[in-house]
């Protein structure tokens, strides 16, 4: 418990044993983590894993069933309204008024956040410039492209210059160029000392984060920097196999003993194995015998995707016997 209070000088978000139940369903199961000030913290997990439920508890729109936590130094159980003054939130759902113009949307939110009249104009210009909407200030929001809308939504959510920002799948449905621009923006904010808590299921975006938390079936199953996760958390090794007809080769490789998983990855295959050397030999041998032209079979640093898939499968294997007992 003490860690919650002790660290509030260096941490922006602290939760301990956070839990949320909906009836008998446990959406978030005793999750604990910390986010340091100025950090970009990525929250990853498949759909329905509990990412949004966790974020909703942190931003004060959903009460936790159990557990404690603070956001920007305020208690998530008792000071939800204080938290709302000190955070910005942007969700996957488009959160601006389509029938209002760019300028009207900004004015509305700056009224709701009661921005100091002296700062209002400067903040508005900042948002318009940041979103690149100088020539569209009097256009209806409805006609803007996805990338513009998303930057405008972010601008409206941080008009009041909050120290902590929560982004719930902010880049879903946005083109790659806009996604890149959006991340530049996040870096810029982080550079100014703003803490960014972001959920995503894009692996390349996960690589941009300072630290990551992986949530699966309501539980936090791994946390650390992308480097740590890739090098330390994965018990198995990963091989890259580049050969002809990778889809057919997949079936062949799966038959070899000691192979845990084979998945298509780019032009080739990623193969999860218990031990690199033996597997390299076995795979090269088998493919040559079956007449596949092999370009490359070697051990690589696993990608985040490999790590997550392997962690999730390990979790599934561990849970299966339990579930069978329950039945």
């Amino acid at each position: 418990m003490n860690s919650v209070e002790k660290n509030s000088n260096e941490t922006a978000v602290v939760v301990q044993d956070l839990e949320r139940r909906f009836g008998s369903f446990i959406a978030v199961n005793r999750v604990s983590f910390e986010v340091k000030k100025g950090e970009i913290f990525g929250f990853l997990g498949p759909n329905g894993a509990g990412k949004s439920t966790t974020i909703r508890m942190l931003i004060g729109v959903l009460a936790p069933t159990d557990g404690v936590g603070t956001v920007a130094g305020f208690d998530i159980r008792t000071q939800a309204e204080e938290i709302k003054k000190h955070i910005g939130y942007m969700s996957q759902k488009f959160s601006l008024y389509d029938d209002l113009t760019v300028s009207e949307n900004i004015d509305f939110y700056s009224g709701i956040y009661r921005i100091d009249p002296a700062r209002k104009k400067a903040r508005k210009e900042w948002v318009i410039e940041m979103a690149g909407l100088e020539h569209h200030r009097h256009s209806r929001t409805a006609i803007l492209s996805g990338g513009w809308k998303q930057r405008l939504a972010l601008g409206c959510a941080i008009l009041h210059e909050p120290p902590v920002i929560f982004l719930d799948e902010p880049t879903s449905g946005v083109d790659p160029v806009s996604r890149r621009q959006f991340w530049d923006l996040i870096y810029e904010l982080s550079g100014k000392g703003v803490t960014v808590f972001v959920t995503t299921h894009y692996m390349d975006e996960a690589e941009y984060c300072d630290r990551l938390g992986l949530i699966y079936r309501g539980e936090l199953i791994a946390a650390g920097t992308p480097e740590t996760l890739k090098t330390e958390l994965m018990q198995e090794d990963v091989l890259e196999v580049i050969c002809e007809r990778p889809q057919d080769a997949m079936g062949e490789i799966e038959q070899i003993e000691g192979i845990k998983e084979v998945a298509l990855f780019g032009k080739g295959l990623h193969v999860v194995v218990e031990e690199t050397e033996r597997a390299v030999a076995a795979i090269s041998d088998l493919l040559q015998r079956r007449g596949y032209a092999v370009t490359r079979v070697e051990g690589i640093v696993p990608s985040l995707e490999d790590v997550f898939v392997s962690l999730i499968e390990a979790r599934d294997r561990a849970e299966q016997p339990q579930q069978e007992v329950k039945r």
């Binding site: 729109v61 709302k84 939130y89 759902k93 488009f94 601006l96 939110y109 709701i112």
Partner: peptide, 14 residues
């Protein structure tokens, strides 16, 4: 429906 409600709920409006 359009999702602005959730956004409003996250502001300090009473």
């Amino acid at each position: 429906e359009i999702g602005t409600m959730e956004q409003i709920m996250v502001t300090p409006i009473t």
